[in-house]
Design a protein around this nucleic acid. Structure first.
Length: 288
DNA sequence: AAGAGGCCCTGATAGC
DNA sequence: TGCTATCAGGGCCTCT
């Protein structure tokens, strides 16, 4: 589900909750996530303290005081929830990411702290946890991925070098985490709309101004999404958790058949499946 | 080697 | 009401 902005919001709220806290106990209900949970997962986490929480791209990085890094990727449907103990030792749901009345069914992993527990819920199980032994190995792992849009390495020279001779369409490049990290299916459509570039354009056909627009709007869209608390695109009933509001600002995503929001444009938003993912674009102002 | 498409999985919803 | 088909914020793997 989440792209970079949503993971950033999770990181911020999670950090307030678990930083400097000691992990007391782990209960694993289901190890079969996108990748099978490591056998030593409980042993490594138990009795360790959370030193720091950071984020790279769509990865949450939880640094433990035993030098290990606990990495969480939420996949399409992963969510984290805090269940607080109250005085009577009953639970009250205090989720910090959009959360329905959390059904127990997909609560795969429970991490117990002193006064609350953290639950990983993931119906589709496309998310995963991995353990990384130390900082060097973490850096090696992260070096597999391209820069985030905010990184100064994501610049004009970089785009030109990577794209100038490539026939792959630009939409697929924006989703390619080895090219740029953190953009997913929603924000790719939004970025290309603002840049006035058709998603199917061959990357090598882009001109210098279009490179600059992609860089500019990638930063702009993601930072605005973060400032709005991310996007929440499913209607969860009775949700007590925080919801993002960037979905109110979608220009094209999920607006198939509606009119283009560009000034003076009479276009209509179209939906087209590109490499198995839906893309949304204006049929007039995004030139092919 | 680059690039397109299949597939992992469950749940919500649209359409008949 | 109840069935089936389609689709969902990701990304690894395989095949051409």
């Amino acid at each position: 589900m989440p792209e970079l902005p949503e993971v950033e919001i999770v990181k911020q709220s999670l950090s307030k909750k678990i930083k400097h806290k000691k992990i007391q106990k782990i209960i694993i209900k289901n190890r079969n996530l996108r990748f099978k949970l490591a056998n030593n997962f409980s042993r490594i986490l138990k009795s360790s303290k959370v030193k720091n929480i950071s984020r790279f791209s769509k990865y949450l990085i939880i640094e433990l005081d035993n030098n290990y890094f606990w990495i969480i990727h939420l996949g399409m449907s992963g969510t984290l929830h805090i269940i607080q103990k109250n005085k009577k030792n009953l639970v009250s749901n205090l989720s910090f990411y959009h959360s329905p009345n959390l059904p127990n069914k997909h609560n795969h992993i429970h991490i117990f702290f002193d006064k609350f527990k953290l639950i990983y819920n993931d119906p589709r199980r496309f998310g995963f946890f991995i353990l990384i032994k130390n900082k060097n190995i973490l850096e090696k792992f992260l070096s597999n991925y391209g820069p985030e849009p905010f990184d100064k390495k994501f610049n004009f020279i970089y785009l030109k070098k990577k794209l100038h001779n490539k026939s792959k369409n630009i939409k697929n490049y924006l989703l390619d985490q080895k090219f740029v990290s953190g953009i997913g299916n929603i924000y790719a459509s939004e970025i290309l709309f603002l840049a006035k570039i058709h998603p199917l354009r061959e990357s090598k056909s882009l001109n210098l101004i279009e490179y600059k627009k992609i860089i500019y709007f990638s930063k702009k869209v993601l930072s605005k999404a973060i400032s709005k608390g991310g996007s929440t695109i499913q209607n969860f009933k009775n949700s007590s958790g925080k919801k993002g509001s960037f979905q109110k600002y979608f220009q094209v995503y999920d607006r198939d058949g509606e009119r283009c929001l560009s000034k003076k444009c009479n276009g209509v938003v179209k939906k087209k499946v590109i490499s198995n993912r839906s893309s949304f674009y204006c049929n007039i102002c995004q030139k092919f």
